[in-house]
């Protein structure tokens, strides 16, 4: 991994006060801009407005509009320009306003960002961070709720990260910006307003990219998840106690690279795994995860690895989205089916 692990985290606050994920991301950007003059933030409405989710709030004021720039409205242009800026030694952090509005930049991403290091034999690594608010559950109208991680995971040459907690949002974004490789940084929209008392301790070192974390140990089965689905899985694990099930929960944090060790160790401990994500199941992230679990843990498995995912449909209108998103019941039903396999 190419990530620096030395950059300091936020200074200890006098009293820990609740901070939202959006504010933690804002702090990460501010600290990164302050720490390294090569860091430049660019995107639509990131300057004066501070971004539609306020993640870039105050940055243009503090660092000037050359460090935090409102660009013309063109995602291919934003990412293409970031490639050139990175070639010249800058460290661009671009914002795509919403998941589905990153698609115009797809060609730049796949044809250039992801392969520049490879095609130039390492001469032109691209330290670009591409922040994308993603996922549903916020009542957004058409094109505001996509989960596009599988496209990015399937593109060799990219890191794909997605935080699920306030602390991780900070640390992982710092790590993404410090990385010399391009990082697609997927921010779960519906967790933007989630809060944590933070920071609570001494400055944390920026975590290395690519480590999953066990959020909850368990003995009956392991839920493997990431991003917006983590809180749902934790809730399911709580509810499962009523059934007498002790569910473990693994938060992947990084989809690429994929931390097989942590996942395999957790699944070996239970012999049962359910992969949970809200993007469509068919050829989704869960397919890769389930395949790897099967390959690594086959002799420990008591049941096939199951997936609980969004349906294979275009993201539905907000009034119907609750039927699409994997919820506690659907997760517990899957866990129930694992027990059947045992009997």
């Amino acid at each position: 991994m190419t990530t620096a692990t030395t950059t300091a985290g936020p200074a200890r606050a006098a009293t820990a006060k609740p901070v939202t994920m959006a504010q933690a991301l804002n702090r990460a950007l501010r600290d990164a801009l302050a720490a390294d003059p090569a860091v430049h933030v660019l995107g639509e409405d990131v300057g004066t407005l501070g971004g539609v989710f306020r993640v870039t709030d105050g940055l243009a004021k503090e660092f000037g509009d050359q460090r935090c720039t409102d660009t013309p409205l063109a995602e291919a242009g934003i990412l293409g320009a970031a490639v050139g800026m990175a070639m010249y030694g800058l460290r661009p952090v671009v914002e795509m306003q919403f998941d589905a509005f990153a698609y115009p930049a797809f060609e730049q991403l796949v044809s250039h960002v992801a392969r520049m290091r490879n095609r130039t034999r390492g001469a032109l690594p691209l330290p670009i961070t591409i922040r994308i608010p993603y996922g549903g559950g916020i009542g957004g109208v058409e094109h505001h709720s996509d989960s596009s991680e599988a496209y990015y995971m399937h593109t060799p040459g990219l890191h794909v990260l997605t935080p699920a907690t306030v602390e991780d949002a900070y640390g992982m974004l710092r790590a993404a910006i410090a990385s010399d490789d391009p990082v697609v940084f997927l921010e779960p929209k519906r967790l933007y307003w989630s809060k944590a008392a933070w920071p609570t301790g001494e400055p944390e070192p920026v975590p290395p990219i690519g480590r999953a974390v066990v959020r909850r140990p368990g003995r009956t089965a392991t839920l493997v998840t990431y991003g917006p689905s983590l809180p749902v899985c934790l809730e399911a694990a709580e509810a499962a106690k009523e059934e007498g099930w002790d569910l473990g929960v693994v938060d992947l944090r990084s989809l690429v690279p994929f931390d097989e060790e942590t996942v395999a160790a957790a699944v070996r401990g239970t012999g049962r795994a359910v992969v949970v994500h809200e993007s469509s199941g068919f050829a989704g992230a869960g397919a890769e995860i389930a395949a790897r679990i099967t390959e690594r843990c086959f002799h420990h498995l008591e049941a096939p690895v199951l997936r609980v995912a969004g349906f294979d449909i275009p993201y539905p209108p907000p009034m119907l989205e609750r039927h699409h998103l994997p919820g506690v019941d659907r997760i517990l039903d899957a866990v129930g089916r694992l027990q059947w396999e045992e009997g």
Binding site: E44, D45, G47, T48, L49, V52, D70, T71, P72, L73
Partner: peptide
Amino acid sequence: FAISVPLAKQT
């Protein structure tokens, strides 16, 4: 305007 972005930054 495009949300907050004035025309001068657009073209």
